[in-house]
Simulated scan of single mutants.
Amino acid sequence: MFDWSKQRLLVIAPHPDDEVLGCGGLLHKAKTAGAEVYVQFLTVGDTADVSDRGFSTASERVGEIKAVADHYRWDDWQIAFPGDDYHLRLDAVPRFEIANTVERHSPLSIASVEPTVVIAPHQLSYNQDHQAAAEAVHTALRPSDTRRRHHPELVLAYEEAADQWRQEPAGTPNLLVELGQADFDAKITAMRLYGSQCHDHPHTRSELTLQSLAVLRGMQGGVASAEGYYAMRWLA
């Protein structure tokens, strides 16, 4: 049984709400157990959404982050590339710059936090910001001498329901994390706090979609509810 109480988690989220969609249940499970949790957002800007105006401002979305951070009791969070010059445009930022930010140039970089667990988006997401983030994390965590660079023992890619839209399916996740009812409830509550990004069903960010995916992954592990991950490194 993996002991989450001894872990220091660093989550890479391309945008606010990706961390909840991908690993919101695990974040509650780990924090409740006693883990440290840090979230590195890459970018946020004005965003088209379901509000009466049809968009939410970056400042409004930062307000949502603060509410979610308080809900989860994160140890810290930070936005690396704020503003519309970067939001939904990370694929135009040199990969070297994003990788260096994740590796050592951010206050919540791998070098600064020295996490035991890094959780990032999957490289097969259709979203260009998610792809750029995933590739940058792969570069930042490249194999090297552990005496010179920090190597997290566990590196995971989280899934979102829309990831399967790509024609290069990632296959079934190879690591399942069981969620208790409190863990799943915390995930739903956090998603509601991202009010500008919630949608009614059918939508990839509806509550029913999150519940359905959790039930499916739970069934695959013989439990009521779970989140699925792709283990990229597990140094036991």
Score class of each variant (00 low, 15 high):
residue 190 A to M: 03
residue 159 E to T: 12
residue 170 A to R: 11
residue 173 P to N: 03
residue 182 A to Q: 12
residue 159 E to Y: 11
residue 188 I to T: 11
residue 146 T to Q: 14
residue 177 V to D: 00
residue 183 D to C: 00
residue 159 E to A: 05
residue 162 A to M: 11
residue 190 A to T: 01
residue 178 E to G: 01
residue 160 E to T: 12
residue 143 P to Y: 14
residue 183 D to V: 01
residue 197 Q to F: 02
residue 204 T to P: 02
residue 158 Y to D: 05
residue 164 Q to H: 05
residue 172 T to I: 12
residue 176 L to N: 03
residue 210 L to V: 04
residue 205 R to Y: 10
residue 157 A to N: 01
residue 154 L to Y: 12
residue 198 C to A: 04
residue 210 L to I: 04
residue 208 L to N: 05
residue 165 W to G: 04
residue 163 D to Q: 07
residue 185 D to S: 13
residue 143 P to Q: 11
residue 196 S to D: 07
residue 166 R to W: 14
residue 200 D to V: 09
residue 154 L to K: 13
residue 168 E to P: 01
residue 156 L to Y: 03
residue 211 Q to N: 10
residue 196 S to E: 00
residue 195 G to C: 11
residue 200 D to R: 13
residue 175 L to P: 06
residue 152 P to V: 06
residue 167 Q to V: 07
residue 147 R to M: 08
residue 199 H to K: 13
residue 152 P to T: 08
residue 204 T to K: 09
residue 176 L to S: 13
residue 174 N to Y: 01
residue 208 L to Y: 09
residue 190 A to H: 02
residue 201 H to C: 07
residue 155 V to G: 01
residue 194 Y to L: 08
residue 155 V to L: 15
residue 157 A to D: 06
residue 205 R to M: 04
residue 190 A to V: 06
residue 183 D to S: 04
residue 186 A to S: 15
residue 175 L to M: 15
residue 206 S to H: 04
residue 163 D to L: 08
residue 185 D to P: 08
residue 184 F to G: 07
residue 201 H to I: 03
residue 161 A to Q: 05
residue 212 S to Q: 14
residue 198 C to K: 05
residue 145 D to V: 03
residue 167 Q to G: 10
residue 145 D to S: 12
residue 183 D to G: 02
residue 177 V to M: 08
residue 188 I to R: 13
residue 198 C to M: 11
residue 167 Q to H: 06
residue 182 A to T: 08
residue 186 A to R: 08
residue 149 R to V: 14
residue 205 R to K: 06
residue 175 L to D: 08
residue 176 L to D: 09
residue 171 G to F: 08
residue 165 W to P: 00
residue 210 L to P: 10
residue 200 D to G: 04
residue 197 Q to T: 09
residue 205 R to L: 09
residue 199 H to Q: 15
residue 181 Q to I: 07
residue 157 A to R: 01
residue 189 T to L: 13
residue 167 Q to F: 10
residue 150 H to A: 10
residue 202 P to S: 00
residue 171 G to E: 11
residue 172 T to L: 13
residue 152 P to E: 04
residue 158 Y to Q: 02
residue 189 T to G: 12
